[in-house]
């Protein structure tokens, strides 16, 4: 069936149901059908990391996943962190440490950093750099991004909190 088929999943905690073509990338599904334009589309070949989202608890490239494959899955996008009025601790740290300039890579950076905060809470700078190396940034030179993730990790540890909506 190259025709449309029904796909159901949970996105940022809300159930969604849409009819999609099998060839529709998850990145385009999120942006065009759900209007969640926080997930950015850069290279569409899995290299730049701008489209990184959380798929069933682990980060994934939305441009290397078809929406039909996410049937029954839990998706979290950057819109699932904080809001402009109430930033998450990680977003707050990005602002404090000037970890973004043009902002194009930022959603992917945040979603990858979220994974690092949860799976490697005591990561060294070298480990953070390795973890973030799959996300390209052309503005910042990365120093401020590493500083922001480290600061967020320290704050979350100090306050005994998890990254997410405040």
């Amino acid at each position: 069936m190259t025709g449309k088929r029904l796909v159901r999943m949970t996105v940022n905690g809300s159930p969604v149901e849409e009819a999609v073509e099998p060839r529709l990338l998850l990145s385009d599904f999120l942006r065009q059908m759900l209007g969640l334009t926080g997930t950015h589309v850069g290279c569409e070949q899995g290299v730049c990391g701008a489209c990184t989202v959380r798929l069933d608890g682990r980060t994934a490239r939305a441009c290397l996943t078809f929406a039909v494959q996410a049937e029954g899955s839990e998706i979290v996008t950057v819109e699932g962190l904080g809001t402009a009025e109430a930033l998450s601790p990680l977003q707050e740290a990005f602002r404090e440490h000037h970890a973004l300039q043009c902002g194009f890579c930022t959603p992917g950076m945040l979603m990858t950093a979220l994974d690092l905060l949860e799976t490697r809470p005591g990561a060294t700078d070298a480990e953070l750099r390795e973890g973030l190396s799959g996300n390209l940034c052309r503005c910042t030179g990365y120093e401020h991004i590493v500083a922001a993730v480290r600061a967020a990790a320290e704050r979350l540890a100090r306050e005994g909190k998890r990254e997410g909506p405040p």
Binding site: G46, T52, T59, L64, T65, T112, D115, G131, G134
Partner: peptide, 9 residues
């Protein structure tokens, strides 16, 4: 192998 998100899949 590649990066975190790639190794996850």
């Amino acid at each position: 192998v590649a990066h975190l998100a790639i190794r996850n899949r």
